[in-house]
Each structure stands twice: as structure tokens, then as C-alpha cells.
Amino acid sequence: MPERPPGVDVSVAQLAFDASPLFDSFRFRLEAGRWTCLLGPSGVGKTTLVRLIAGILEGASVTADDGRPLSGRIAWMAQGDLLLPWLSVLENVLLGHRLRGQRRSRPELAARARELLVRVGLGERLDALPHTLSGGMRQRVALVRTLMEERPVVLMDEPFSALDAVTRFRLQELAARLLARHTVLLVTHSPLEALRLGHRLWVMTGRPVRLREVRPPPAQPPRDVTDPALLRIEGELLRELAAGQEVAGWAPGAR
């Protein structure tokens, strides 16, 4: 990567979509060159936070700690794959370059895109149209499209949610390797995923939202998922998240 990735500071004075504010004097930090993982129940505001940082939603002050503007240095992978149905897999993956009119270095780019698609198991489907792919395959295309942006800051909103367990496991490793030393925000529902990949872990709850930090095991990510310490924290986190959902009025069997 040509440049050193910046840390990102987010602060939201107040943000409300209805009577009760979602964010109130909220501060959050993505450490430079690290993976920050965000856990929390559905609807708590994780996606909103990602959209604020990406600059899609107004209302937050988002700054890079190297003082330069963040525009043009962020890649965003949304919850939906957002593939364009009229473009092939390969063309979708190169969408950013197409939109910016960067056609000069096409051959190298296409070669790089092909290589990444092969590595996520889509080497045979380069010319396929998105509607012929399964949900998991589409998500892998979206992941490669995000990687192809080669931006120092990467925001991913549940990037592996549609994948089967084994593919998810492999792609977590691939993403961790390719995005090592990037500044990454990973939103996920899976405590195991967060514990495996995150340098820093935060659990988001409440309204207005609060953040609580969880200490991952000391090893460097991607961590060994058979580590008993990691599995113990996963169990605790699952219990905590489940308890949080009960408090929020949801319990199995009681709709």
C-alpha cells in the first residue's frame, strides 16, 4: 500500500431520527492500521455509524488523524451486495475504476481482479451476471470489489453474513491478510468473527448508544479459533448479547 493508513476520529454531537436520539455526545475512534470490530443487537445503530463514517449520512464530524481529508480514502462494503445487474462479475469488481474513468492501467487492474476472484473461489464465474449467482457468491464479489478499491480505510457492514461457515472462515483469513495494516471497521453479528479478526472490540447497546470495550485474547489476528480463551470470551459475549435482547423486549417463544 502506497500510503500509511490514518486513524479515524468520529464524533456525533446529536443525531435523532425520531423523538429519542440515537447518538448523543458520541465519540468513536478507529485506530490507524488496525481492525476495529463492532458488535451489537440488530437495529442498535451500527449501520448508521458506518454510513456516517462513509460520508453517506450527514451529521457526524469524521476526521483523519493525519490532518488530510478522508474523501477518496475510504472503501465501503454495504450490507447488501449492491452489484449492478447488467455488469459481469469482473466488471462489477472494477466498478470504482470504471466510475472514475481510470482506464489507463486496465490490464494490470483486470489481472489483479481476476487473481482475487480466483482466490475467493469465483475464478470460473468471471463473466457471469450477478442474478445467476447465489447470495454468498454475490457477497464474495462485493468483497473483491471493496478490496480492488485499494483504499487505506475500509468499512465493512456484515461482509460475511451470507456465507456458509467454511467459506466464511476462509474469507475471514483472506480479508485479514489482504487488509492487514489497513484501518478497518468491521460490523458483525458474530462474536467469534469479531474475536478472530479484531484488534479492538466494541459492543454497542442502548439508546442513545453506548460502547463497551471487550478485550480480545492477546494473540495477533487472525486468531486461532480453537484457543480456549477466545472461546470463553465468545461464550460470555453471546450470553451478554442474548441478555441484552431480553431486556429489549425479545425472548425466544415470547413474541
Binding site: R51, A54, G55, I56, S71, G72, I74, A75, W76, A78, G80, L82, L84, L95, G96, R98, L99, R100, G101, E149
Partner: peptide, 19 residues
Amino acid sequence: GWLELARVMNAGRHAVLWH
């Protein structure tokens, strides 16, 4: 969603319209 993606990708107005 496509328009938001294009925005994060720093696409110009014409590129968004055309592509």
C-alpha cells in the same frame, strides 16, 4: 444504494448518470 456506493467511490455526476 448504488448512488451511495458511487459517491464513496468518488464518481462524478456524469459517470454516475452514464454508468
